[in-house]
C-alpha cells in the first residue's frame, strides 16, 4: 500500500501571547511545530507501515524553513519527503492551497491520502476535503480510527457530536485525522542523524500538474478585509480574601444577578 500524508508547519498558537498594552500579537520566540492533527495523521500512516508494510510519503507546502518538519517526518520513519515551494503559491487561501497540493498529488501514486482535520493557525478544516474534490476521490473527515482489510477496503471510524459513525470506503480515498486518534511516536535517535542525510525533493510549479490561474493570490476567492486583535473588555472586580469571605462574595453576586433568590 502507498500512503501520502500532507503535513503543515505552524506556529505553536498556544505560545502566542497578546501584548496587554498594545493589544497586538507577540510572535517573537514562538516555536514552529508540525501541526498536531497532521502529526496524528502521520502516526496513523506509520502504524499501517509497521503492520502492513506500507510506503509512506510526506508532502508539505510552505516556505524554505518548512524543511524542518520533513526532517522530523524522516526521523519518525517515513520513506519519502516532498517540499512544495514556489513564489507562485504565495498568498493562497484554502482553495488555492488545495489546488497546489492536488497538482502535486496528481504526480504521485497512492491508495490512501491522509491530512490532519485542521491546522491550528487557521482552524478551517477545509484543505483536506477540497483536495479530495479536485482529485475526484471520496473523503472521510474527523477520522478517529481506520482498519485496512489488506485488499482494498478501509473501515473507518468518524467522530460526530453524538458519538461516531462507522464507514466503509475503497482505496483510493482521502481522510482527515483528529489529533485525538493516537499519540504520535517520538523521533528515534538514529533517525534524527539519518534525517539530515536523506533527500527532500523540492518541487515548484513546473513539477506539478495544475492550472496556474488557480494558484496563489489570484487563485484565492477569499481575501482578508482587515485583521485585528480582539478587544480586551474592562477588568471586573478581583478579590484576594479567605475562602469563607470569597464564597460570601460569590453568593452576593449570584443574588445581585437574580441567579439565586
Amino acid at each position: 500500500m502507498k500512503i501520502v500524508v500532507c503535513i503543515k508547519q505552524v506556529p505553536d498558537t498556544t505560545e502566542i501571547k497578546i501584548d496587554p498594552k498594545t493589544g497586538t500579537l507577540i510572535r517573537d520566540g514562538v516555536p514552529s511545530i508540525m501541526n498536531p492533527d497532521d502529526k496524528s495523521g502521520l502516526e496513523m500512516a506509520l502504524q499501517l507501515k509497521d503492520e502492513k508494510g506500507a510506503h509512506v510519503t510526506v508532502i508539505t507546502m510552505g516556505p524554505p524553513q518548512a524543511d524542518l518538519i520533513l526532517r522530523e517526518a524522516y526521523a519518525m520513519g517515513v520513506d519519502r519527503a516532498i517540499h512544495l515551494t514556489d513564489r507562485k503559491f504565495a498568498g493562497a487561501d484554502t482553495l488555492a492551497t488545495s489546488h497546489a497540493l492536488a497538482g502535486a498529488l496528481r504526480k504521485i501514486d497512492f491508495d490512501l491520502l491522509i491530512t490532519g482535520r485542521q491546522a491550528i493557525d487557521g482552524d478551517t478544516a477545509q484543505v483536506g476535503p477540497q483536495i479530495a474534490e479536485h482529485l475526484d476521490l471520496p473523503q472521510v473527515s474527523y477520522l478517529e480510527d481506520l482498519k485496512f482489510d489488506g485488499e482494498k477496503t478501509f473501515t473507518m471510524k468518524r467522530h460526530i457530536e453524538e458519538g461516531y459513525q462507522m464507514l466503509e470506503v475503497e482505496a483510493p480515498c482521502v481522510v482527515t485525522v483528529l489529533s485525538s486518534a493516537n499519540n504520535p511516536r517520538y523521533m528515534n535517535v538514529g533517525g534524527i542523524v539519518d534525517a539530515y542525510q536523506k533527500e527532500v525533493e523540492v518541487w515548484g510549479f513546473n513539477e506539478i500538474e495544475v492550472d496556474e490561474k488557480n494558484l496563489g493570490l489570484k487563485g484565492s476567492p477569499t481575501s482578508v478585509h482587515k485583521a485585528f486583535a480582539r478587544g480586551l473588555k474592562p477588568a471586573g472586580e478581583l478579590y484576594e480574601v479567605e475562602t469563607d469571605e470569597a464564597v460570601g462574595i460569590i453568593i452576593k453576586k449570584l443574588k445581585e444577578k437574580f441567579i439565586l433568590n
Binding site: 482552524d123 477545509q126 476535503p129 479530495a132 474534490e133 473523503q139 474527523y142 460526530i160 476567492p221 477569499t222
Partner: peptide
C-alpha cells in the same frame, strides 16, 4: 460549523470553485 457542515462546506466550495469562510 458542525462535524457535518465542516465536511460538506469545503467539498461544495471546491466543486463550485468559490470562497468559504470557516467558523
Amino acid at each position: 460549523a458542525t462535524t457535518l457542515g465542516r465536511d460538506l462546506g469545503p467539498r461544495v466550495s471546491a466543486r463550485v470553485e468559490t470562497g468559504l469562510t470557516a467558523d
